[in-house]
Write a protein that binds this DNA or RNA. Structure first.
Lengths: 224, 224
DNA sequence: AAAATAAGAATTGTCGACAATTCATCAATT
DNA sequence: AATTGATGAATTGTCGACAATTCTTATTTT
């Protein structure tokens, strides 16, 4: 018997899953203010689902880290401070280095063309001044190495981390309306990812991520 | 206002959490056979909780990977094959390498003494032929670098991965009643972890993990 | 006036019941 | 005989109500 198909997209057709996505969207777009408390009855009514269903969705969001649940005291929208961001970025760096190590020998012409396409989509969004699209395109670009690695645990970890990045990017963008964390700094990334030296790629990753972090960190002094 | 205290031990005093722990224990001890289906009504009755409470616990176990949930079709106890184990070990290797990179400069006499103690506890269990205790002691030993790293995302990832290891060790031990994956092979690990060369430690980690994997993989041919 | 205490309201945790979907059985068709 | 299709049972998904806990506010005490 074939073992269970890992659902490539965990967004099933169950109401709980759709609720999860909608709530996540509400958080990511900033409709729900970081630090504020989520009243289950209220949110359930807003999303037109029962509390039980909402709670099942909230558990997953807590696991991801977008929500902080205190037993009997409620769930709060995650607040990101400078330290949290540093953690996210350093962890992301480590994950992506792993991903490149695993995917390195699996690269071929098809996957390289795929990478190229993702980059072009990103550049297009930047040209169009489409900040939100650019964020998504950048994340999709970075998805490449995880998908290619064929390492489900690694991909899973990245998928869990990604919403946190998206969350911060949205916050950041909302606070300072021009898109911050983006630029054409991916040229080198692409070049090395197609190149022959894994070590160079890994080294560049550290630099690339560090720069991305500093580039975004310099703003975070709005609220303590 | 102080931001939310990350609960150091997520095992809160809520029934859902206790249920999670008990169900996890049932899986880890092998009372529930891998691949078998979990009937919610049945398990809920067995644990003497409502189905809603059980379901909330099961969601978390699905996230960890001990359960596989198929919408409308049920939840199954995870089945580990050779490939899964390889993934777990390679991911674990990457995580622990990250952990040592982060904790390296934080080592001091106190933490080194702590490491020593954990190793001695492991050796004690091995001497006593306490297989289960040795498994726990080994995991606790490896916890050291994650705790010391002070990196919550990293620690979290490890905590999520750990039950899968525990799961396999128990399966393994149940299938071949002598304790398999353990030995005094941690001497070198300890020595290098206390030493001066991070590179040597990282290199040894690859070796240490690879050996641990091979040591356990050689059995897995009981059921396809 | 400040701190401690106690009722009441509000909110989260838990439960049992109903709805939607899948699974098992068996008859009908080719 | 094998495949298809329908019917009923079993199981999961979803809901609304009750119980336990926390928060608020008023009252008392020092």
């Amino acid at each position: 018997m074939k073992s269970f198909e890992q659902a490539t997209s965990p967004s099933g057709d169950t109401l709980k899953d759709r609720t999860l996505e909608r709530l996540q969207e509400l958080i990511l777009t900033g409709d729900l203010v970081p630090g504020s408390k989520l009243l289950e009855t209220q949110v359930a009514a807003k999303l037109d689902v029962s509390r039980a269903t909402l709670r099942e969705a909230m558990i997953r969001l807590s696991e991801i880290g977008l929500l902080v649940n205190l037993p009997f005291r409620g769930s709060y929208i995650r607040k990101l401070d400078r330290l949290d961001l540093q953690e996210i970025y350093s962890f992301r760096t480590g994950l992506e280095k792993m991903a490149f190590q695993f995917c390195w020998d699996k690269r071929d012409l098809i996957s390289q063309a795929d990478l190229q396409m993702r980059n072009e989509r990103l550049c297009q969004c930047i040209s169009d001044n489409d900040a939100y699209g650019a964020i998504m395109a950048e994340l999709h670009l970075h998805n490449w190495c995880y998908e290619l690695s064929g390492h489900s645990l690694l991909l899973q970890s990245w998928e869990r981390l990604k919403p946190n990045l998206q969350f911060y990017f949205s916050m950041h963008q909302k606070a300072h309306d021009r898109a911050g964390p983006l630029r054409e700094s991916h040229d080198e990334y692409i070049r090395l990812a197609k190149g022959d030296s894994l070590d160079d790629m890994l080294l560049h990753l550290e630099h690339h991520m560090q720069q991305g972090l500093e580039n975004t960190l310099s703003f975070l002094d709005t609220t303590s």
